[in-house]
Design a protein around this nucleic acid. Structure first.
Lengths: 345, 345
DNA sequence: ATCAAGTTTGGGAGCGCTCCCATCCACCTG
DNA sequence: CAGGTGGATGGGAGCGCTCCCAAACTTGAT
């Protein structure tokens, strides 16, 4: 068969060619209309749009991707162990934010849970080979080679959170320091004098920041930073429980605790109950994350809220900018946190 | 330029052609090796595989999709209002299950949150136009036209949950009836005599089933079903609170409550506390979902666990079967639920 | 050695689109 | 009225792959 007339697509759906024939124009013109090129007369544009509507034409993504060398897809890479561990809703909220931001564009969201470090490695190759226009990274650890790998491959990417204070990689994070400060200032403002803290694992930058915020707020209020009031946890409930017991043991005069996660606060609450201390009567409690647990604790837990969905949106926005304007100045955004007051303080 | 030698892909990555040249074979042969065709000699296969490894060749997805008329992508459609509402972790767990099942294949997971019914409608067209090999549906409501639309378009799809007892659409669900039975039998087994229930919205089939299970367990144990022990809630904490107050009011002799969701159980717990009833001393409490809230209530809540991740896996498996074996008998799977005993009962 | 039957292989055609160049046309200037 | 200018338009080439047919090579039986 010669190159002659092409009809409907193989699966019965109309093709560009069809639309062109119907509108009485050439393929190029239809393509121009679809892609919003200004070099089309109004009359022609209207005719083409009518034909598109009549036929119910929808561009074929794969064909477009092949011809134009882009995919209109971005990947969200989540390390699965993290997603499982703490703050599950975090994950959903990020997705919601990203998805909301993508809704108006016609980018597709590809979800990739990486189970193992090896899978993560493979993803970079995959990303390069299969053409993802950009990548969104969540929960990146210090030793993770993925960001640098993507950088080398020239794949636009944005991460959520930072690995250190001077994170060179494009990122969106929330202000953990300020959040912790808010919490401690609040405690101090309610007349508490001996404020302890249960921290996260300090090799995680976010945990480190929350401790820094605790310290700064204390010192700003004229209190001295005291090691005996600090217990190093790991974000789990169990560590909150153990930490609280230990703290109570060494400093029975504690009248307030700032926990770097709600889960640890729940653990601490349990220890306090066992020790016969009332909340907030004897000891005021503040958490971090404003998760569902916080709302359902007894009493409900005052907590620092991160704008998770907002971070998702900001990441998507930053990534699209990077994709379209071709590698601009590295975007680094720090979003504000907020204190949600409840009965525990 | 004539049709002559093609070199590297436009973006510098090796193409099929390159691999063929390197292995000293034709394009067709390489394609056959990649797609696992048996009609290749061992010697040739080995040579091709070596060339692929040398070059670090990764097939171009879009090109493959275009030529083969498939996409190797499946979409997970989630109504965003639901995802937000209750049981957030549900959503994550489904994703985890689906993703786990897809990890060994090279299907991509596309995530689509549909904000409005209109967006949902548009998705069908989109699915047809953009070629998704299959669709996974979560939280489908009674009036939702999407399943039927997909059916007409001949797009393989599987839904999570059922809209009614005789759901014709391929689906994976858990055994809500049996779960509720377990809960009530457990309560009865602990010597409780007057077991009330706070239901979900009864136009939701899952809620209806949980009530049915409650009734069946009661009757099987020789108790009569009593309307005054049933309060119709809507899965929210507030409705649990109000329901418990009302129930206590009409039947002060209640000594156990089965709530059709953990969130409602949390509300009920609050009402019980206000009424001065101890848990489980005066009133035993059982929830449904086994969510984070359950684990962190005081006392921790006995609850019915659904195999959420397992449902995700089962859905993915069923969909892949449908895609590959071309519309087999409608798969309908009901996974078992399980009672998790904690302090509240 | 010869032929039939089967197996393995090469490569043309084509998937639906974008890119880009050549062409066409309308309008303006001198 | 010829020549020039710039915007609108048509359509060839090609993106990297799969499909499939025909060619080439095996093998075993005659």
């Amino acid at each position: 068969m010669a190159v002659g007339r092409r009809g409907l697509g193989r699966d019965g759906r109309p093709t560009l060619e069809q639309v062109a024939a119907r509108a009485g124009v050439g393929r190029g013109t239809v393509s121009r209309v679809i892609n919003g090129s200004p070099r089309v007369s109004d009359r022609t544009r209207a005719a083409v749009e009518a034909a598109i509507a009549d036929l119910g034409y929808v561009p074929h993504r794969a064909a477009r991707a092949l011809a134009a060398n882009r995919t209109d897809a971005i990947a969200l890479v989540v390390p699965e162990p993290e997603a499982r561990l703490f703050a599950e809703p975090y994950f959903s909220a990020i997705i919601r934010g990203v998805s909301a931001e993508l809704a108006d564009t016609d980018y597709q969201l590809l979800l990739t849970l990486s189970r193992t470090p090896k899978e993560r490695q493979r993803f970079a190759q995959y990303a390069a080979g299969n053409r993802v226009d950009g990548v969104l990274l969540v929960s990146v650890h210090g030793e993770d080679p993925l960001p640098e790998l993507l950088g080398q491959l020239g794949i636009p990417a944005v991460m959520n959170g930072r690995r250190s204070a001077d994170e060179p990689f494009p990122h969106v994070d929330c202000d953990n320091v300020a959040g912790a400060q808010l919490a401690v200032e609040h405690l101090l403002g309610r007349g508490r004098r001996t404020v302890a803290t249960i921290t996260g694992p300090l090799d995680m930058y976010a945990a480190w920041c929350r401790l820094a915020g605790y310290r700064e707020a204390l010192e700003a209020a004229g209190h001295e930073y005291d090691d005996s009031l600090v217990w190093r946890g790991d974000f789990t409930e169990e560590s909150g429980y153990l930490g609280m017991r230990e703290l109570l043991d060494r400093r029975p005069d504690i009248d307030a605790v700032f926990c770097a996660s709600d889960l640890m606060a729940a653990g601490a609450r349990r220890a306090l109950r066992e020790a016969g201390r009332s909340v907030p009567g004897d000891v005021a409690l503040v958490g971090f994350d404003d998760s569902a647990i916080a709302r359902h604790m007894d009493p409900p837990l005052t907590s620092v809220r991160q704008p998770i969905e907002g971070m998702g949106r900001a990441m998507a926005r930053a990534l699209l900018a990077e994709i379209n304007d071709g590698m601009p100045i590295h975007p680094q955004q720090i979003l504000p946190t907020e204190l949600v007051r409840r009965g525990s303080s």
